[in-house]
């Protein structure tokens, strides 16, 4: 084989395989748009019923929660049980809809997987420390705020970082992919290096291994981490407001209304305060 025919061959095979993928993905892409369009259609019309009826039919509420966050949703490797603030909120919701807090199925989500899992219909709603943001409102619908957090920094006990103003050039900040924390820190501290990991557990391990100077996310999560490992502390200052909401599929109005009703109820009857005290400690501040 001469060199020229060799080059020709390289070129043609490269082209063919790229073409092939394009075609493959074109089919894929098409079906994507089809299915999302269909989803929207069915959800907007009452054809597919609402999620609420589906939940009652199957007599079980399927909630996406985190498995790796102390205080909010943490799986105990020994017992296999998942526990936390979000879990108690989810159980209350199951009780409200189905009359029994045990008629619930928890599914693990991460910041990255939760929206796809919801839109694919794997879960009915997301209760996973999810901040209500304009960007996300394009993808999902949110309930009222059920927890008010603020972004902060987790650092070593003896660290010199005491606030966002100390995050300068040469400081490495760790966080998880798909979270708003990364976007926020890039805005507030554009000179810092930001590294994003698959989830907070990996990011925290990396912080412990000295791969960064601080871990950034919402203070509520950071408190849980600091509780796990006393070598770390949470910086007092918060530099954003992170209102957590329960996310449902777009257009699922009736379900959202039920959730809001439920949140109002537990805030009025003191159930919310109980859950709050159980996990976070202080009585909630002036939240509505």
């Amino acid at each position: 084989m001469s060199f020229r025919s060799f080059c020709k061959k390289i070129l043609s095979i490269s082209l063919i395989s790229i073409l092939c993928i394009s075609i493959l993905s074109a089919c894929g892409g098409k079906t994507t748009t089809n299915t999302t369009a269909e989803q929207e259609k069915t959800e907007n019309s009452s054809d597919n019923q609402n999620t609420l009826e589906k939940i009652k039919e199957r007599d079980k509420l399927i909630v996406g929660v985190k498995y790796d966050l102390n205080l909010f949703g943490l799986k105990d490797p020994k017992t296999g049980k998942v526990e936390g603030f979000d879990i108690d909120i989810a159980k209350g919701l199951a009780k409200k809809i189905l009359g029994d807090e045990n008629k619930i199925e928890l599914k693990e989500v991460t910041s990255k997987t939760r929206i796809p899992l919801l839109n694919n219909g794997d879960i009915d709603c997301i209760i996973a420390t999810m901040t209500i943001s304009e960007e996300r409102k394009k993808e999902v619908d949110f309930s009222d705020v059920y927890f008010m957090a603020g972004q902060s920094l987790l650092v070593k006990k003896d660290s010199k970082i005491n606030g966002i103003s100390d995050v300068k050039k040469g400081v490495t900040v760790l966080t998880a992919k798909g979270s708003t924390s990364a976007q926020n820190i890039r805005e507030k501290a554009p000179e810092a290096t930001v590294l994003e990991f698959e989830n907070y557990a990996e990011a925290f391990t990396a912080l412990k291994a000295g791969q960064g100077d601080a871990l950034t996310t919402d203070n509520a999560l950071l408190l849980g981490m600091a509780k796990q490992d006393p070598n770390f502390r949470v910086v007092d200052e918060t530099f954003t407001e992170e209102p957590y909401g329960i996310a449902v599929r777009k257009g699922d109005t009736e379900f959202v209304n039920t959730i809001n009703e439920y949140l109002k109820e537990i805030k009025e009857n003191g159930e919310y305060d109980k859950i709050y005290e159980k996990w976070i400690g202080d009585v909630p501040k002036n939240e509505k």
Partner: peptide, 24 residues
């Protein structure tokens, strides 16, 4: 992919970049 919530297309583009290196 985790910022845009688009997975399929992004991974296809990533695949093309890899093929650009590996096929030759």
């Amino acid at each position: 992919s985790s910022e845009t919530f688009v997975t399929f297309d992004v991974y296809i583009f990533v695949a093309m970049f890899y093929l650009l290196l590996t096929i030759p």
